[in-house]
Nucleic acid binder design. Structure first.
Lengths: 110, 110
DNA sequence: GCTTACCGTAAGTTATGACTTACCAAGCTG
DNA sequence: CAGCTTGGTAAGTCATAACTTACGGTAAGC
């Protein structure tokens, strides 16, 4: 998904909380909603948005649905941010342009 | 500034346009506003928000004010994104955890 | 000094989207 | 099968924030 969409989706505080909660591993909706200051339907709506933009994925298990982080959903935004570092055009204020390229050691997901 | 604030600020499409325009180097408000679909005061308001969050800086030159990108304003958000890659807790779905730390070669701004 | 360019701020309007409650569907459990 | 759990969706409410126009203030130009 475009970095623009990802930015818009992650901008909301409670939606970001939902997302960050999934760092602890896949979780059913009920569990995610517990501890958050909003109702369960609200969490469902946030999860839908997160899923539509590719930031989470869903796996059904009986009546429960486990959501988990899709790291690749963040890739485009990360690349956009990185582009500000090897952006030659920003050399206006930087005395000497360091000619490093993108960082190594980080495997590209997409 | 916190990555949360930066996310919220960059979420708005026209504000992001304002920000990206500054990639071409420092520009006065009038010039930034030209070509954007909103009024000049609107651009001023966006610039204020961008400045408050540390994403741009301002330099006065006569009656004009040149705005430019502050790369460091993006640092915290970039680090947050990176943290999803060396996040050990995300090892749920990843078969083998690659134990790389933060990428080298990218000088930290803050 | 008067006018003109540049820009920030105030005030008011409006659309968007983040909530809520209510409802419905689907699966385990007895 | 009846009842309970889980969770998605609909509809409606409400606050926020992104705009607009109007105004004021400062620096340059004549």
């Amino acid at each position: 998904m475009t970095y623009q969409a990802v930015l818009a989706v992650l901008a909301d505080p409670t939606r970001r909380q939902v997302f960050e909660r999934l760092r602890d591993g896949p979780q059913p909706v009920k569990l995610i909603a517990a501890g958050l200051p909003v109702s369960r339907p609200a969490v469902s709506q946030h999860l839908k948005v997160l899923k539509d933009v590719g930031l989470v994925e869903e796996r059904s298990e009986g009546t429960r649905r486990f959501y988990s982080v899709r790291r690749e959903g963040l890739a485009e935004l990360r690349d956009w941010l990185d582009s500000f570092w090897d952006d030659a055009l920003l050399a206006f204020k930087i005395e000497a342009e360091r000619s490093h390229r993108r960082a190594k050691g980080r495997k590209r997901d997409e």
